[in-house]
Every structure is written in structure tokens, then in C-alpha cells.
Simulated assay, not measured.
Amino acid sequence: MGPGGIATIIAASSLLVIAIAVSYAVIRVGRFIDEAKTSLKAVTDEATPLIEEVHTTVTLVNGPLQSFNRITKNVEDISEKISSTTSDFLDKSGPALKVAGALVSAAQMGKVRSKKKKKKAE
């Protein structure tokens, strides 16, 4: 056997080692893909009921929130009506407001006097 035959045997052996390494890598990648597919299926199977439960929870929470929204809207409407009524009253009855202020002041002064009388009596 000459130098060309030995070179052919070395080249064939090298190609055999490379082919074995490539086939091993392909087999490992195939197993990895199968495992990833299995994991993805497990995650999907577990996530679907969880998403359905979250949807149910959100639906149940939205009901009271809509009621609360209606209540706050009604309170807002009432406070706007009271504000407009008060401003109309203040605009139209300035003298009546002065009289009411004087009455309130007199009532407070009466309370202060009665407290002083009680302290003196003791």
C-alpha cells in the first residue's frame, strides 16, 4: 500500500468521525426539540384553566365596580345640583344671607354667655 492509500484511509476515518459527531449533535437537538414541545404542551395545558379563572374573576369584579361607578355618578350629580342651588341662592338672596349670618352669630354669642353663667354658678 502506497502513500495515496494511507491518505485515503486517514481521510475516510476523519469523515467517519465527523459524520458520527454530526449525527450525535442532530440526535441531541432532536431530543431537545421533543422535550421543548412536551414542556410547551404542559405549560399550555396548565395556563388555559388559569386564564379562564382570571377571566371569571375579572368578570365578577367588574359587576361591583359598575355598581360603584353608578353610585359615584349619582353622588356627583347630586353635589353638582347642590352647588348650583347654593350659588343661585347666594346670587339671588344677599340680604337674606346677611340676616342668616347675624342670627348664627347671635346664637353663638348666646352659647358663650350661657357657658360663662354656668362657670360662675359653680
Results as ranks from 00 to 15, higher is better:
residue 3 P to Q: 06
residue 4 G to L: 13
residue 5 G to L: 05
residue 6 I to W: 15
residue 7 A to V: 07
residue 7 A to N: 14
residue 9 I to W: 11
residue 10 I to P: 15
residue 12 A to R: 08
residue 12 A to Y: 09
residue 13 S to W: 13
residue 16 L to G: 11
residue 17 V to G: 07
residue 17 V to P: 01
residue 19 A to I: 10
residue 22 V to A: 14
residue 23 S to T: 10
residue 24 Y to M: 13
residue 25 A to P: 06
residue 27 I to M: 13
residue 27 I to A: 13
residue 28 R to A: 15
residue 29 V to T: 14
residue 29 V to F: 15
residue 29 V to D: 15
residue 31 R to K: 12
residue 32 F to E: 15
residue 33 I to G: 04
residue 34 D to F: 07
residue 34 D to I: 08
residue 37 K to F: 06
residue 38 T to V: 12
residue 38 T to L: 11
residue 40 L to H: 03
residue 40 L to F: 12
residue 40 L to C: 08
residue 40 L to D: 09
residue 41 K to M: 11
residue 42 A to G: 08
residue 43 V to R: 15
residue 43 V to D: 14
residue 43 V to E: 15
residue 44 T to R: 05
residue 45 D to W: 07
residue 45 D to H: 08
residue 46 E to P: 06
residue 47 A to S: 14
residue 47 A to I: 12
residue 50 L to T: 12
residue 53 E to H: 02
residue 53 E to F: 00
residue 53 E to R: 13
residue 55 H to L: 04
residue 56 T to N: 01
residue 56 T to P: 00
residue 60 L to A: 03
residue 62 N to D: 10
residue 62 N to E: 06
residue 62 N to M: 06
residue 64 P to D: 00
residue 64 P to L: 02
residue 70 R to N: 04
residue 70 R to C: 00
residue 72 T to F: 00
residue 77 D to S: 05
residue 77 D to P: 03
residue 82 I to G: 10
residue 84 S to M: 09
residue 85 T to S: 08
residue 85 T to L: 02
residue 86 T to H: 09
residue 88 D to Q: 08
residue 88 D to E: 03
residue 89 F to I: 00
residue 90 L to H: 05
residue 92 K to F: 01
residue 95 P to L: 09
residue 97 L to K: 09
residue 100 A to H: 04
residue 102 A to C: 08
residue 103 L to T: 04
residue 103 L to S: 12
residue 104 V to I: 12
residue 106 A to M: 07
residue 109 M to S: 08
residue 109 M to A: 09
residue 112 V to C: 02
residue 112 V to L: 12
residue 114 S to C: 02
residue 118 K to G: 01
residue 119 K to H: 06
residue 120 K to C: 00
residue 122 E to P: 03
